[in-house]
Amino acid sequence: MNAPMTQPKIRVRGLKKYFGDKKVLDDVDIDIVAGTGLVVIGGSGSGKSVLIKSILGLVTPDSGVIEIDGIDVLKAPRAQARALRAQIGMLFQNGALFDSLPVWENVAFGLLAEKKIKRSQARAKAIEFLAQVGLADNVASLSPAELSGGMQKRVALARAIASAPAIMFFDEPTTGLDPIMGAVIDELIVDCVKRLGSTSIAITHDMASAVRIGDTAAMLYEGKITWTGKASDLLTSANPVVDQFTHGRAEGPIKMALRR
């Protein structure tokens, strides 16, 4: 028997999701061991975001199992599922900072919502988290619209780590950033995840980023996981789908629909 040695922190089995007639996720199986980082790669519209949104509870899958700490969040009572998902910190693709609030309130938002701190202490606490992502305290009073793309990503990362989440999701963390800023954000992600001992899932198109932040990797293609392995093996994989994708070749098994 091949019984698993340890229970994965997140276990996904047979996950399916359709949008109308379009099959987005088709029998997706994933295991993520506690304290490790999984990187999911795949083309635009391959279902990467739907996968993590399903785990987060933002999208309801049509069928399948999503277990966090061995409990199926799709079948668990609402309060229990909510408590399990409260362990997850999320860095959204475009930061998703709240425009109407200053930076410090964005960072402390989760802490205030969970009543972990009083409002009078929130600003000082937010400045601590901003320092952890390399931002000075004078940023705290600015509005998100006054920040550059890289700074917005850092603020969003500070907000994601503020509640010390046991699980962290990163949705294309380097999209829209120059290569140097992308590398800086990756370093911050690795540092934060290591410091918190979190389990992480990142989805990305950026192969350099994937290798930097992932321990393991999975390729999502046509709604299925077509390859899994070490993140460091991504660029040398013999799998033709992974090989074409990671090297950005126009020719290969992946056919892109061209609009003429």
């Binding site: 949104k53 987060l56 933002l58 409260a86 999320m90 959204f92 900072l97 709240f98």
Partner: peptide, 10 residues
């Protein structure tokens, strides 16, 4: 995604 972000922040 700000509405989704609210959900992830309890």
């Amino acid at each position: 995604d700000q509405i989704d972000a609210l959900s992830t922040l309890s």
